[in-house]
């Protein structure tokens, strides 16, 4: 895939980082305000997709990116399940109830950033998973069309 003109590249350089930060903000504030892992993850994926569209990449680079992002996707779900069954795992060492999805961390003060037990953690892992998954989807489609064009040449 070819990149775009210098104007698009320059603007993207400025905007992509801001979009990425906004996605992080939505993800981390998920337990206090509307948003959360899924919404934040899509925004983060959007910033990556913008970068690839603006700067372009050859097929090899895209395939490398796809392998890495699908790895992160699987890692996100893995961490999510580990956190969800955290109470069961930790109950062998500490005095927790052996319950799946038990919120085993301290709840804290409502309205603070660090509160609501493990819900912010779950939000972060979901955000990671969704961002990686959507980016992988995008890359898969791009790679398919790129291969077709290379065959034509």
């Amino acid at each position: 895939m070819k990149g775009m003109t210098i104007i698009v590249k320059k603007v993207t350089q400025i905007i992509a980082g801001v979009i990425f930060l906004y996605g992080l903000y939505i993800t981390i504030q998920g337990h206090l305000s509307p948003g959360g892992g899924f919404a934040g993850g899509t925004i983060i994926a959007g910033s990556f997709i913008l970068l690839v569209l603006a700067f372009g990449n050859d097929v090899l680079g895209l395939v490398k990116k796809e392998i890495r992002s699908s790895f992160i996707e699987a890692l996100g779900i893995f961490l999510f399940i580990l956190t969800a069954s955290g109470a069961i795992i930790l109950s062998f060492y500490l005095n927790y109830d052996k319950i799946f999805f038990k919120n085993f961390l301290t709840k804290g003060v409502p309205g603070e950033i660090v509160s609501a037990g493990f819900i912010p953690l779950l939000n972060i892992f979901i955000g990671m998973e969704v961002a990686a998954a959507l980016f992988t989807l995008f890359l898969a489609f791009v790679i398919k069309s790129e291969e077709k064009e290379e065959k034509k040449k």
Partner: peptide, 16 residues
């Protein structure tokens, strides 16, 4: 819950 946790874990460990 093991009926869901274990196959799901296998499903994400295998691609890694």
């Amino acid at each position: 819950p093991l009926y869901v946790i274990l196959p799901l874990l296998a499903g994400v460990i295998i691609p890694i």
